[in-house]
């Protein structure tokens, strides 16, 4: 269980002014839940994810995992970034093996596990390719495999499909759900796409425009495993999307008022 308790984040802008990015966020994420954080760009949703990852220290409040305060990054929380952040000097296999090798797993074992993971994310045959030789979608598959390889308890996904074209994006969403169905890790997924959040999640946390606050938490009560074609015809699915889109429009107006 991840608990975020009264977390605020203040950044210094280049003009040396304080900018409040997150304001007093409290949130509980149950084990095994797929939770999306949804909000307009600049609402601090990624920052919230980085705080859980331990990459950013909150200005106020505490984030904790299993009752222990998060003070830094660790292999129990595996990030997947929009920018992929692969190691360009390593092959696909080298990237995926990096975590297991770091954890002291012997080369043959690490390699066998990594090859299996690469096959699972659909990249069999690309083991010896370098990241520069891959498309964006393939890079993100490698990044996912690389993170899964060190068995984090929680996946922290920071707009992972944001840089991909619509078609690739849908395919990766489907594949992510299929992979997730196998062991149902806790996933914290940041996105600004309403459709993506509803399709993937058990729970959608809607944030307000800057400074980011929790505006609403919506439970997505849709059956799993989910299939896009079935869901698209499901009135409940459509209702969730419309409902959240409307809230989105409201929060967009905040700035103008």
């Amino acid at each position: 269980m991840i608990e975020i308790d009264g977390v605020s984040q203040v950044f210094q802008t280049s003009a040396r002014q304080d900018h409040l990015a997150l304001s007093n966020i409290s949130l509980t994420i149950e084990d095994g839940a797929f939770v999306s954080i949804l909000g307009p760009s600049g609402c601090g949703k990624s920052t919230l994810l980085y705080i859980v990852g331990g990459f950013v220290r909150p200005t106020a409040g505490v984030a904790s995992m299993k009752g222990r305060a998060i003070t830094g990054p660790g292999p129990d929380r595996g990030p997947v970034f929009q920018e992929f952040a692969l190691f360009p000097w390593k092959s696909v296999l080298g990237n995926v093996m990096y975590g297991p090798r770091q954890q002291g797993i012997k080369r043959p074992d690490a390699e066998a596990q990594s090859r299996a993971l690469i096959e699972m994310v659909g990249l069999k045959g690309f083991e010896d390719f370098y990241p520069k030789e891959l498309s964006g979608g393939m890079k993100q598959r490698v990044a996912l495999a690389r993170t899964l390889a060190y068995h984090p308890e929680v996946l922290l996904m920071d707009e992972p499909f944001g840089a991909l074209d619509a078609h690739t994006r849908t395919r990766l969403q489907n594949d992510l759900l299929n992979i997730w169905e196998r062991d149902r890790k806790t996933v914290l997924f940041v996105t600004h796409s309403v459709e993506e959040a509803v399709f993937l999640s058990d729970k959608v946390v809607m944030m307000t425009r800057s400074p980011g606050r929790v505006r609403e938490i919506i439970d997505i009560d849709l059956p799993r495993p989910r299939h896009r074609t079935e869901l698209l015809l499901d009135p409940r699915y459509q209702k969730y999307i419309v409902e959240i889109e409307r809230m989105f429009d409201d929060s967009g107006d905040d700035e103008l008022r």
Partner: peptide, 24 residues
Amino acid sequence: KMLWSGAAMGLSSTQRLVRIVLPA
């Protein structure tokens, strides 16, 4: 983000300098 990925795998800051910053 590359350094963060390494940190999540458990690389210390010295290890990140040698094994991520140097090759990158």
